[in-house]
Simulated scan of single mutants.
Amino acid sequence: MKLLAIEWKPKVNLKGRDFLTLSDFSTEEIWYLLHLALELKTLQKEGKEYKPLLGKTLGMIFEKSSTRTRVSFEVAMYQLGGQGLFLSSSDIQLGRGETIGDTAQVLSRYVDGIMIRTFAHKKVVELARYATVPVINGLTDSFHPCQVLADLLTIYEIKGALKGLKLAFIGDGNNMSHSLLIGGAKMGMDIAVASPEGYAPDDQVVKLAKDIAKSTGSQIVITTEPVEAVADADVIYTDVWASMGQEAEQKEREKVFPPYQVNEELVSYAKEDYIFLHCLPAHRGEEVSSEIIDGEHSVIFDEAENRLHAQKAILTALMG
């Protein structure tokens, strides 16, 4: 895939900041991270070493299992000259009752940054409150900002723009829909979310996205109609029907969500050159048909690769 030239690089200093949600960052700051990610990606593709985090360590707390988050952060730290330290909740005292505040303050004496992948978003917020090093949200039940930064990077690479594009998210109003609403609004994208009754995105997140959209000129649509959401979309996005921690709801959700499957009939309402995104892992035959996720419009593996480059930008900006 051809990489875009770096033509605009704002003067932004994010050193020492936390990365909890994209709502904490301005449009200019997000553009800075995207262009930095492109620059770092170009260096890697050209085989050029760049090690701004030489000698630095990222503590990585995992209370949820992971493939892309763990591997991409570990590889990112290695390529940037540092080290990622895997900390399973079953191996550290946080999993045995130590307070988040104590954990944050102790780790801050050892490492240069903390990434956490957990359930309740309030745990990330509390960790950041007590830590004296940058804290990065690797995923919570409410938000997944690292993934959406990679999504924005992927869309920008392929479409050459973000503002004015329409992204349709089909499925559960979960952490992905929340972060896409905020990130898309920040970048001036129109975002349409179609979810079954009772599974819509959180009202407060929708209100926040609409408030952001007023200043960026984007439109936010929340609907129960997949065709309405997908109509003239440049990007179609979906996620699993039951996320981690919702396994007990799987059977019930399998009864509710089939009309929201992304398939050939649904995508026929999108623009002819639409692209398909999925944060993975995917359940082919459930939220998306094999014809779509493995078809010519799918860029899911470019998207997955961009987790590495987007997170290298976050790490470099916050810890470099």
Rank of each mutant, 00 (worst) to 15 (best):
K123I: 13
L107A: 13
A128M: 00
Q246R: 10
G164T: 00
D151Y: 08
R117Q: 00
Q261K: 15
H178I: 00
T132S: 08
Y130R: 11
S179R: 07
M60T: 15
V262R: 09
P145W: 09
A209C: 06
Y274S: 04
P134W: 12
W8C: 09
L80K: 08
E291N: 12
K11W: 01
I314S: 14
K255S: 15
K48V: 06
D211V: 04
G183H: 10
F276E: 06
D234S: 11
S290N: 15
Y237V: 02
P145A: 05
Y32N: 08
G217C: 03
L149K: 11
L139M: 03
I155L: 03
L266W: 02
E28L: 09
I116R: 05
R117L: 02
A242L: 07
L315G: 13
Y78G: 05
T67Y: 05
N13T: 11
A242F: 04
A168Y: 04
N263A: 02
S90G: 14
H178G: 03
R253H: 14
W241P: 12
L208Y: 09
K123H: 06
S66A: 05
E126P: 12
D202L: 03
A304K: 07
F19M: 14
G285P: 14
H309A: 14
S23L: 07
M244E: 04
V193M: 00
G160M: 08
A161M: 00
C279N: 10
L14Q: 08
D190M: 02
I61C: 02
D18F: 03
V124D: 06
V288G: 14
G95P: 00
I30Y: 03
A168T: 06
G184C: 05
A213S: 09
E252G: 01
G16F: 08
K207N: 10
S88Q: 09
N174G: 10
K166N: 04
T103R: 10
K15D: 02
L85P: 03
E305C: 12
V262N: 08
I136E: 04
V227K: 04
E7I: 04
D24Q: 13
L152G: 06
L167A: 12
